[in-house]
Amino acid sequence: MGFKLLSKLLVYLTASIMAIASPLAFSVDSSGEYPTVSEIPVGEVRLYQIADGVWSHIATQSFDGAVYPSNGLIVRDGDELLLIDTAWGAKNTAALLAEIEKQIGLPVTRAVSTHFHDDRVGGVDVLRAAGVATYASPSTRRLAEVEGNEIPTHSLEGLSSSGDAVRFGPVELFYPGAAHSTDNLIVYVPSASVLYGGCAIYELSRTSAGNVADADLAEWPTSIERIQQHYPEAQFVIPGHGLPGGLDLLKHTTNVVKAHTNRSVVE
């Protein structure tokens, strides 16, 4: 069995187990497998329904001669939608809004960016022009300005110390501490036991640490421990890039980060 097929099978099995364990909360999309990078042309966006009122959005972007996937989250909030992270750029984010209108038909009224990198804030200006209120932590807003990236308009308070959590509509926002970046936030959907790890969490097929220019490698494993301790009931975990899975993604990420750190020390 090929690795790609095995990865998709694991996603399907995880979703099936969740649907059985929580039949009222989960209505997993039966329309197909989780979209992969090879299936999404740059400039297009796919939506994948995880649970009743919960979707991931998947886009792709060219970077350094390669094409990478990027995940975000959409959560229903009454007759409105909360968006977590842009679709990595203005063109993708405009396509995301169009796809949401086509498939869901509810307005996106608020959006949260989970850290300051372009795959999370690139497209904020498109959201703002569409009347979406954009939010991020003060740290993310400051770092985005320093980096020359787009800056969300509103500040999220109460997320300055490791372990801080605040309720934001249908989700809980959690600051686990520094990891992929010093400002990275985690998003949890309690009604569906869905954990969105953003770039602080890796997919299972990833074996290298990737972009760690703004990471705190020493603190990252401790931050992941905080996530595990705060959300032990999480059933569906979405990484910032690639295929979702279960809580095993947290341990896998820790292993990859520690291996990278150990290699760096040896070198």
Rank of each mutant, 00 (worst) to 15 (best):
M1R: 05
F3L: 06
L6N: 08
L6C: 09
K8G: 09
L9E: 07
L10H: 08
L10N: 10
V11Y: 10
L13M: 07
L13C: 09
T14W: 04
A15L: 08
A15E: 05
S16P: 09
S16G: 09
I17E: 05
I17V: 05
I17L: 06
I17M: 06
I17F: 05
A19N: 14
I20P: 11
I20C: 10
A21F: 10
A21D: 12
S22Y: 06
S22A: 13
L24V: 11
A25G: 10
A25E: 07
A25V: 09
A25F: 07
A25C: 11
S27T: 10
S27F: 10
V28R: 10
V28E: 07
G32K: 10
G32R: 11
G32T: 05
G32W: 09
T36L: 10
V37W: 08
V37A: 09
S38E: 07
S38H: 15
E39M: 10
E39I: 08
I40E: 14
G43I: 03
G43K: 08
E44Q: 11
V45D: 03
V45Y: 00
L47I: 09
L47M: 15
Y48Q: 07
Q49I: 05
Q49A: 12
Q49W: 09
A51C: 07
D52C: 04
D52N: 14
D52R: 08
G53M: 10
G53I: 12
G53Q: 09
G53V: 13
V54S: 04
V54I: 11
V54Y: 00
W55C: 01
W55P: 01
W55V: 02
S56K: 09
H57P: 00
I58P: 02
I58Q: 06
I58N: 07
T60M: 10
Q61F: 10
Q61W: 13
S62V: 09
D64Q: 13
G65Y: 06
G65S: 07
A66S: 08
V67I: 09
Y68C: 05
G72I: 00
V75T: 07
R76H: 11
R76K: 07
D77K: 06
D77M: 12
G78H: 06
D79G: 13
D79F: 07
L83R: 01
L83M: 15
I84W: 00
D85A: 00
D85N: 04
T86H: 00
A87S: 12
A87Q: 00
G89Y: 04
G89N: 06
K91V: 14
T93F: 01
A95L: 09
L97R: 01
A98G: 09
E99L: 14
E99R: 14
E99K: 10
I100P: 00
I100A: 14
E101F: 14
K102G: 13
Q103N: 13
I104C: 01
I104N: 02
G105C: 12
G105Q: 15
P107Y: 15
P107T: 12
T109P: 12
A111P: 03
V112L: 11
V112I: 07
V112S: 02
S113V: 12
S113Q: 05
T114I: 00
H115C: 00
F116A: 15
H117A: 00
H117M: 00
H117Q: 02
D118A: 08
D118Y: 06
R120C: 04
R120Y: 01
V121P: 04
G122M: 05
V124D: 03
D125T: 07
L127F: 05
L127G: 01
R128I: 12
R128W: 06
R128C: 04
R128V: 07
A129S: 09
A130S: 08
A130V: 10
G131I: 04
T134P: 03
T134C: 11
T134Q: 00
Y135L: 04
A136N: 03
A136K: 03
A136I: 03
A136Q: 03
S137H: 08
S137P: 05
S137C: 05
P138R: 10
P138T: 06
S139M: 07
T140F: 03
R141Y: 04
E145T: 13
V146T: 13
V146A: 12
E147S: 13
E147I: 15
N149D: 14
E150R: 04
E150A: 11
P152K: 02
H154E: 12
S155M: 14
G158T: 11
L159Q: 00
L159A: 04
S161C: 11
S161E: 14
S162C: 11
S162M: 15
S162H: 07
D164L: 08
D164G: 11
D164S: 10
D164W: 10
A165M: 15
A165Y: 08
V166W: 09
R167V: 05
P170R: 12
V171L: 09
V171G: 02
E172G: 03
E172N: 08
L173N: 02
F174T: 02
Y175S: 04
Y175R: 02
A179D: 03
H180C: 00
H180R: 02
T182R: 12
D183K: 01
N184R: 02
I186Q: 00
V187L: 07
V187T: 06
Y188C: 02
Y188W: 13
Y188S: 05
V189P: 00
P190W: 05
A192R: 09
A192D: 07
S193H: 10
S193D: 08
V194Q: 00
V194A: 07
L195Y: 00
L195F: 04
Y196A: 13
Y196L: 06
Y196P: 01
Y196C: 03
Y196N: 02
G197D: 02
G197L: 04
G197C: 05
G198Y: 01
G198V: 03
G198L: 03
A200W: 02
I201Y: 00
Y202L: 14
E203W: 02
L204V: 12
L204W: 12
S205G: 10
T207H: 15
S208G: 10
S208A: 10
N211T: 07
N211L: 09
V212F: 11
V212H: 06
A213S: 13
A213L: 13
D214E: 10
A215K: 05
A215Q: 05
D216C: 05
L217M: 05
A218Y: 07
E219Q: 11
W220D: 01
T222N: 06
T222D: 12
I224V: 13
I227T: 14
Q228G: 13
Q229L: 12
H230T: 08
Y231F: 15
P232M: 12
E233A: 12
E233T: 13
E233L: 14
Q235A: 06
Q235G: 06
F236Q: 15
F236W: 13
F236L: 10
F236R: 09
F236V: 08
I238G: 01
I238D: 00
I238Y: 06
I238F: 07
P239M: 01
P239R: 01
H241D: 01
L243D: 08
P244A: 06
P244M: 07
G245M: 01
G245F: 00
G245H: 05
G246Q: 08
G246M: 07
G246F: 05
G246H: 08
L247R: 12
L249W: 01
L249I: 05
L250D: 01
L250M: 05
L250N: 00
L250T: 04
L250P: 03
K251D: 05
K251L: 07
K251I: 05
K251V: 07
T253Q: 01
T254L: 13
T254I: 08
T254H: 12
N255F: 12
V257N: 05
V257H: 04
A259H: 06
H260N: 07
H260L: 10
T261F: 15
N262G: 09
N262W: 07
S264N: 15
V265N: 14
V265S: 07
V266D: 07
E267I: 09
